[in-house]
């Protein structure tokens, strides 16, 4: 009986040592997992108005080579209160973060957003160009 107890205790001790010595998964400053992925692009873009309805007249044109997002919005869109939504490749994140409505009214100086890859080593800055529908 004692033999068994000793054997089990030894086994558990070994297992404990092995597990505790294993390195933790690396996380970044936001507590998000840093992975091995190097892809870094925007896959979809949406723009919502103050009433949370889309203001796009058509799908946004995302150029991952030129790193631009061209979006055409309805005539009369209130550009000062828009909610952008980015869909990114797996594990990537956006900088700056979107926390609420943003002011896109300065058309001459379009807003820029940086996509950071899963391994947090590649950064690509996208420019969001807005064009308003004209009569």
């Amino acid at each position: 009986m004692l033999k068994y107890i000793k054997a089990i205790a030894a086994l558990m001790l070994t297992a404990g040592i092995l597990i505790s010595c294993k390195e933790d998964f690396p996380v970044d400053e936001d507590g998000l997992l840093i992975t091995a992925r190097t892809q870094c692009y925007v896959s979809n873009f949406e723009l919502l108005g103050a009433d949370f309805q889309t203001v796009r007249t058509e799908n946004a044109i995302i150029d991952t080579t030129a790193q631009t997002i061209n979006v055409k919005v309805f005539y009369g869109t209130d550009l000062k209160n828009l909610f952008p939504q980015f869909s990114l490749v797996t594990d990537a994140k956006l900088d700056p973060k979107i926390t609420g409505a943003m002011d896109f009214s300065d058309l001459a100086n379009p807003k820029k957003f940086t996509v950071v890859s899963g391994n947090r080593k590649i950064r690509k800055t996208y420019t969001v160009n807005i064009a308003v529908q004209q009569p």
Binding site: F74, Y75, G76, Q133, Q134, P135
Partner: peptide, 8 residues
């Protein structure tokens, strides 16, 4: 208003 090319 019903204006061509835009939604008013």
């Amino acid at each position: 208003r019903s204006i061509p090319n835009i939604t008013f």
